[in-house]
Design a protein around this nucleic acid. Structure first.
Lengths: 216, 216
DNA sequence: GTACCATTTCAATAGGCGTTGAAAATCTTC
DNA sequence: GAAGATTTTCAACGCCTATTGAAATGGTAC
């Protein structure tokens, strides 16, 4: 009898500390479990990549049971897709950057990239981690970069060796993303956007327009 | 009785097909299990990264039991460390590249990088995969890049904003490595070394010596 | 040739993973 | 306020993981 009372009062009087076990059943309205899971997923996938991240770990960070991942997203993969789903259309941004004065196209491209990545840091971080750790994801990303970016640029700017040029641009942008968002390499990580644009735009412009003389 | 004979002949007459079960005990000398494990580990870690790669998978590719990983390397982590252990001293290469005519230092740096990565493709691929999927590995790599590369360069070349300049160089080299070795982005993946040097060396040279006018 | 040692496979261990179903608790609707 | 639907936790499942110890086998030294 005393045992039952003790356990009951334990449950009822426990404050909301980190080790506290939640009561079962539907939570009071106002707490959005789905949103909490999405936010936690973005963080954890960004830190660890898809494979290393665990459903249990994400749920714990969200302060929620792991079974909620299945209830709201149908599973781990569904949660990942929902978390990285871009809230904007990248192709529109790319089109806007490409059209316009060809002499300053590099500046627009790098500005679009850094602005987008700075705003959705965790999202792109999660994408990068997933790409680097997963062969099929890398292939998907490579095909996207090639068709949605490289081909578009080469169609617009009429130069020789178009694919070599744009893959060089891609390498600089990927490296910038790795250094600034994944490796947190200072001072590049904290440099303001205009400094980054001023330093890297000439590189892209050269890759796009310079004469290529050596064989290859 | 017939059963026993059948099973015996099975074991004795089975050719060395893929599904064949090996006999126990010490193998005939000449086959180097340790080396086979190292080679397989380099491949699999390069393809999947440390966490996703499995001891069983590596052992299977090496044609050996998973327990051999513990016997020879003490465990999964030991095998990884043994596999990525560089057979050359990177600091010596970096020193050699940095010393010499400052006007062509960029050319030497990029040549050393591409030559080394081309030769040890799987090794660097494994490193990259591990970095991208693991926070502490990323921190280790960042500190190495900073202390062994950036600080060395800034000490040798006397310019302002030395750390920003060298982190920009690092971003281009990292991006080149990702594109050429991890993402397999054509035509950069297959471009010959001299083409890569000719295209990227001016970028590094500019990052190292150009005037930086904008604020940051 | 026999005892010993190094090498290898097999079987079993404990632990983590994603996922599932039932029970509990709240909200909504009538 | 009672009935039903929705949300949540708990407990358990099956699977896969790295690791370990015992048994088996080939080589080696005497």
């Amino acid at each position: 009898m005393a045992d039952v009372v003790e356990r009951l009062t334990d449950k009822l009087t426990d404050s909301e500390g980190p080790g506290t076990r939640r009561r079962r059943g539907r939570r009071p309205s106002g707490e959005d479990t789905r949103a909490a899971l999405l936010a936690a997923a973005l963080e954890v996938f960004g830190e660890q990549g898809f494979d290393s991240a665990t459903v249990r770990g994400i749920a714990t960070r969200a302060g929620v049971d792991a079974a909620m991942v299945n209830h709201w997203f149908g599973g781990k993969r569904g949660l990942f897709l929902a978390a990285i789903q871009a809230p904007f259309d990248p192709t529109a941004l790319i089109d806007a950057a490409i059209s316009g004065d060809p002499d300053t196209v590099a500046e627009r491209i790098i500005r679009v990239f850094v602005t987008a990545w700075d705003t959705h840091r965790s999202r792109f971080r999660a994408l990068m981690r997933n790409i680097a750790g997963n062969d099929s994801a890398a292939a998907t990303m490579r095909d996207f970069v090639f068709n949605a970016v490289i081909r578009r640029v080469t169609d617009t700017i009429g130069v020789d060796r178009a694919e070599l040029r744009t893959s060089l641009c891609a390498s600089q942008l990927i490296g910038l993303g790795m250094a600034r968002y994944v490796l947190d390499l200072e001072p590049l990580m904290s440099a303001d956007i205009e400094t980054v644009v001023a330093m890297i735009a000439p590189t892209l412009q050269r890759y796009l327009t310079a004469d290529i003389t050596s064989a290859g």
